[in-house]
Design a protein around this nucleic acid. Structure first.
Length: 572
DNA sequence: GCCGTTTTCGGCCCGACTGTTTTCAGTCG
């Protein structure tokens, strides 16, 4: 029974939800959530690790019981403890946790009194007024619950980073413009540059913070004010993006910034380190007893704990603290390290600009090279190239390289991987190109075995350099296709094929966790925009975010090398 | 359920806001 890591993580999270409602020891609940997170962040399939006989208790947050649980889940596809809990509690009860204002205690109350186990039943007792029989349920809460039921029906929504960005930056400048504001920072997962954000957390330092709060809730895009307190207020914007504003004094800026940036797991880790030293860290500072010993800057807090500064993108408790202690933190790649872009299209297929327009835009960015990688013939909707048209384009690129000074255009293709794993164009033409990207564009629903065999065969083609958008996932729309990534990593390593971080903001594929694994395996990464027009060359920023979250350094990235180095690396 | 240069038992990060309360539980981040 092949279960992916995220399915195993789901089982642990479900377990945590049900235990929580049941009123189990909250630390046990946390243990399951921690384990789920460890599993999710692993980047290597647990199934493989178990098959290799690894001692799973070596993993953080996994002890003997959970190690046994993982083995059971992999062997049987099920977790008996979860099945038993499901017997005790009706299906759907955990869905109620998604309702704002409802936590385990209130759900328990609702279930004990009314046997409620669905959103519909909840709405019924709320609307009829029966719900007021329960202690602690007043009109405000009931109104919130009813609203929550409506919302839950379209729940789980996170905003893509690129969609949240204009709102975040708009608010940043709106707040910065206010008189008396000293500092504004967008914290939370936005600052960690996650591919999606659940909400925006904004931190301000201001002399007159009450006036800032008033100014904040008056922002033109605010639809609703959810709460408004002296240090913290929450609004919903017209696009349903939630924004929290928090204000602190200047001397607390660093600790507040650190706290609100998260991640939660990272915070817990460093707070524990403080506890070990007899200190306490909260959003106001680092304290020894009542005495403040730090907190004005983040650097100072890390230093107090004997750590170096940890970049926000790394703060996921994926080993960054340990790496820091071992002086092995990566020096993360930066936008200025990027020397070129190895995936883009021209109007010859489904792009919207000429090669020259793409090249001139890239030149203005200071790039040394680009690769034109139009589609191959199987992708008829994109007017994909046959051999003849590709050769014509190669000649055009030769002419352009003669006339254009200051940038080199590489001849490439984004060649379809056909269903049987063969390439859509013959080797005779592939071998004449500077760079060949292989990509899956159809038949997404093959079995894991078939899909993996298909891609592996393509990777073994001697002329393939990069696997483009390797898992095919589209954020919020399409899951990754079934692919045994451990196998893909193995073959990429053997065949010296690079993996792409496709910088399209809805792709960002491979993701951060896979990027980190690829690096550890010594597989090179191409961060590429897949641009279909000159403006989209700016997507590089999003790919870079993902790369940094994947611990990548300049040396790990193909297109952070000079043209001559790149050419050597592309020779197999 | 995890974990350990104090510990194999007894801890487990910490505070703000709301709504419902007469002093605080529940929820959230």
């Amino acid at each position: 029974m092949a279960l992916s890591n995220s399915e195993i993580a789901d089982i642990f999270n479900q377990m945590a939800d049900l235990l929580e409602i049941k009123g189990a020891n909250p630390f046990k609940v946390r243990a399951y959530r921690n384990a789920a997170r460890t599993v999710q962040n692993l980047g290597k399939s647990l199934e493989d690790l178990v098959a290799q006989g690894m001692d799973l208790t070596k993993l953080p947050g996994i002890g003997q019981d959970l190690s046994d649980a993982i083995r059971e889940i992999i062997e049987t596809g099920k977790f008996s403890k979860l099945e038993a809990l499901k017997q005790e509690m009706p299906e759907g009860l955990d869905k109620l946790l998604a309702i704002e204002g409802l936590g385990p205690k209130r759900i328990q109350q609702l279930y004990d009194t009314f046997h409620i186990a669905s959103l519909e039943e909840l709405a019924k007792v709320a609307e009829s007024g029966e719900i007021y029989q329960l202690k602690g349920f007043g009109p405000k809460l009931v109104e919130k619950i009813l609203k929550g039921v409506q919302l839950a029906k379209k729940a789980g929504h996170r905003f893509r980073f690129d969609i949240a960005k204009p709102f975040a930056e708009g608010l940043r400048s709106y707040l910065s413009d206010f008189k008396g504001v000293i500092n504004v920072e967008i914290t939370g997962s936005y600052r960690r540059r996650k591919e999606t954000v659940g909400d925006l957390d904004i931190l301000v330092v201001a002399k007159n913070w009450e006036a800032v709060t008033d100014w904040f809730v008056k922002y033109e895009k605010v639809k609703e004010v959810v709460s408004k307190g002296p240090t913290r207020s929450t609004v919903i914007l017209r696009n349903d993006l939630q924004v929290d504003l928090r204000s602190v004094a200047k001397e607390s800026y660093g600790s507040a910034l650190n706290y609100f940036t998260g991640s939660k797991a990272h915070n817990i880790k460093i707070r524990k380190m403080a506890v070990d030293r007899g200190w306490k860290i909260n959003e106001y500072g680092v304290f020894e007893g009542d005495k403040r010993i730090g907190g004005e800057t983040e650097e100072q807090i890390y230093k107090l704990l004997g750590l170096c500064y940890i970049e926000p993108e790394l703060r996921e408790d994926r080993g960054e603290v340990e790496a820091c202690l071992a002086h092995a933190l990566p020096k993360l790649i930066e936008l200025s390290d990027i020397r070129g872009d190895l995936h883009m299209h021209s109007k010859e297929t489904d792009g919207h600009a000429t090669i020259e327009e793409m090249a001139r835009t890239a030149m203005a960015k200071g790039y040394e090279y680009i690769a034109i990688t139009d589609h191959s013939k199987h992708l008829t909707v994109a007017k994909g190239f046959d051999e003849k048209r590709l050769r014509a384009q190669m000649e055009e690129i030769d002419r352009l390289n003669d006339s254009l000074k200051g940038i080199t255009i590489l001849k490439g293709i984004e060649c379809d991987i056909l269903e049987d794993g063969s390439m859509d164009l013959p080797d005779s033409v592939l071998k004449e190109l500077d760079i060949v990207l292989a990509a899956v564009h159809y038949k997404f629903n093959l079995s894991t075995k078939e899909q993996t065999q298909r891609v592996v065969k393509a990777l073994q083609n001697p002329y393939v350099h990069v696997l483009a958008h390797p898992t095919g996932r589209i954020i919020g729309h399409r899951n990754a296709y079934e692919l045994d990534m451990s196998e893909i990593f193995k073959v990429c390593k053997n065949e010296k094929v690079a993996l792409e971080i496709n910088a399209q903001p809805e792709r960002l594929d491979i993701n951060d966790v896979y990027a980190k694994t690829a690096k550890e395996e010594g597989i090179k990464i191409s961060i590429a925009t897949d641009a279909h027009d000159p403006m989209s060359l700016d997507f590089m920023e999003y790919g870079l975010n993902q790369a940094r979250r994947g611990w990548l350094e300049k040396g790990d990235v193909l297109n952070a090398h000079s043209l001559s180095e790149l050419k050597k690396m592309l020779k197999k």
